[in-house]
Simulated assay, not measured.
Amino acid sequence: MCPTKHKKSHLHQNCNNRTNSAEDWREEAINGGSLKQVDLHTGSNGWASPPGELFLLRGPNYFSRKVKNPAGEWLLNPAGVDWLRSNAKLDHVLARPDNRVMNALRASENREKSSKTFIVAVNLQVPGRDHYSAVFYFSSKIDQPINSNPLLHEFINDSDAFRSSRFKIVSKIVKGPWILRTAVGNYSACLLGKALNCYYHRGPNYLEIDVDIGSSAIASAILRLALGSVTAVTVDMGFLVEAQKEEELPEKIFGAVRICQMEMSSATFVDSATPTSKVLPMSSGGDTETEED
């Protein structure tokens, strides 16, 4: 056996072991939620990861030809879904000491000191007698740091005004009653940051986007319609930063999720009175510290 080849194989094996170890937290986060990961085509009462090709986004020549193309690969990896119920609106869930995804990541980082994982979470806040939150978690890829996409990097680090002018959702009803399809259409795109009140929480290794669906009467009405037949509804949602300049094209989804015929009763109850960690202001170098209440 050639020693050089053996050495390279050994190094490659070690690299794979480190990669797998660094990703263990994500498997834990995906499997630990009350809403389970299910099959993309046959699953129910759970979530799945729809391929980017199912979403049409602004292509390289959009501003001159108005052409949209299939989105392609996501910028981030899926890292789980939480379906939560509470006695009050849940804000800034990533700062809660009981947030299972951040706890899994922190435990991993204690083992892997070189980890540079970044989390983007979208928290859809559902109003009502009981308050619900559907929280979608996405994490940076090991071989693609968060600054590898300039537009996403700007979105994460710029002002709330910039974020609200760019935060976009594309959605598609895969299954659902005709009345819902008639009300919202089979496929739609919307600047969530302009249509609804969105609040942004920037931590040392995360950005959380809280979307207050109750801030729009139209959105609340559509939501009530959807929840009335939620066990019969399957919907795809893709999240992205809208490209508004030629050099920002083509658009890329940073994360997407398919919610499959969900049951309201599958939500985990969370006490809104549980204290959150205080996130100290970002320093000029972009680092923060956290401390418990």
Rank of each mutant, 00 (worst) to 15 (best):
K194T: 02
S284W: 09
H153G: 05
V230M: 14
P177S: 15
I253A: 08
Y187W: 08
I209H: 01
D287K: 14
C260P: 04
A217K: 07
P145C: 04
T234Q: 05
Q261P: 01
S164K: 15
K172T: 09
A273V: 10
E248Q: 11
M264E: 15
K245L: 08
K168P: 05
D236P: 04
L152R: 06
E154A: 02
A273Q: 12
S266L: 10
I218R: 09
A243M: 11
I259A: 08
I173H: 02
T288E: 03
C190A: 14
S220T: 07
E246L: 08
M264W: 13
D160F: 13
I259K: 04
C190Y: 15
D160S: 15
L225N: 03
R163Y: 01
A221L: 10
S265G: 09
A232F: 11
G285K: 07
F269L: 05
E246W: 11
A267G: 02
N197E: 04
V174R: 12
D287N: 12
G286A: 06
L151M: 02
G176T: 01
I173D: 01
L191G: 03
I173G: 00
V241G: 10
N197S: 03
S266D: 11
Y187H: 12
D143V: 02
R166Y: 05
K172C: 04
I156C: 03
